[in-house]
Write a protein that binds this DNA or RNA. Structure first.
Lengths: 109, 109
DNA sequence: TTAACCTATCGTAATATTACAATCATTTAA
DNA sequence: TTAAATGATTGTAATATTACGATAGGTTAA
């Protein structure tokens, strides 16, 4: 046990859950917000922004990379991180589709 | 360790991460989609919908309740579950605000 | 009442996540 | 070349999550 039974769900459901999971930590929210605010690639500035150990931040960055949300480019001895614009748009679209307008009927308890 | 350091993030960041977490499992996505599709309260039908043990589904329902996304009303020996319309609208709003349009400048690597 | 039914809760095992120190790999500056 | 700087990776401990059997607590039907 302890392992999600992905096989009993649709691919879409698994994917959406995965997307949510990528953002289900305040550090990753904070990193994304920082990159959005910078509105540019950020080179070697992220560790100083959060009170977390370098290894921890690197781990969170890796998860965001795996989720496709950010891209890292090596620049000298820094790494520059950007929001992946296409993935971002995709996330926005998928989330919006999930949170479509909902108007319950009167047959509710 | 192994414990999220909530105190170093803003309340908003923690809250948003919590919201994402509530939906970061395909079973919970599936349950919400089922309730949305039914567009009504669903009384004692959910366990039959998913190939998960009753205890597991009850656990997921509890998490969705804790997140405020659904409400359960006891009706005889069934429990009727509904989407919480207000919470749903709130989620939609917060998520949309996070996924604001993003137009990176040309100073990206 | 008794039995069947439905759901929540408890206990527990397996796995995942979070955090950090230590270390490794690479690049730049001296 | 050597040393400093930067970030990834490894190893590990603490905690959380996922799943399920067993059981408890209700309600309804017989």
């Amino acid at each position: 046990m302890g392992l999600t039974k992905s096989e009993i769900f649709t691919e879409k459901q698994n994917k959406l859950a995965q997307m949510m999971k990528a953002l289900a930590h305040p550090a990753r929210i904070a990193i994304i917000q920082y990159l959005l605010k910078a509105n540019a690639c950020v080179c070697g500035d992220i560790v100083g922004e959060l009170e977390l150990a370098q290894a921890t931040i690197s781990q969170h960055l890796k998860e965001l990379k795996n989720a496709g949300l950010i891209a890292g480019t090596i620049d000298g001895r820094n790494v520059c991180y950007c929001i992946d614009k296409k993935a971002w748009a995709q996330y926005r679209k998928e989330f919006a589709a999930f949170f479509v307008e909902y108007q319950p009927k009167d047959n509710c308890c």
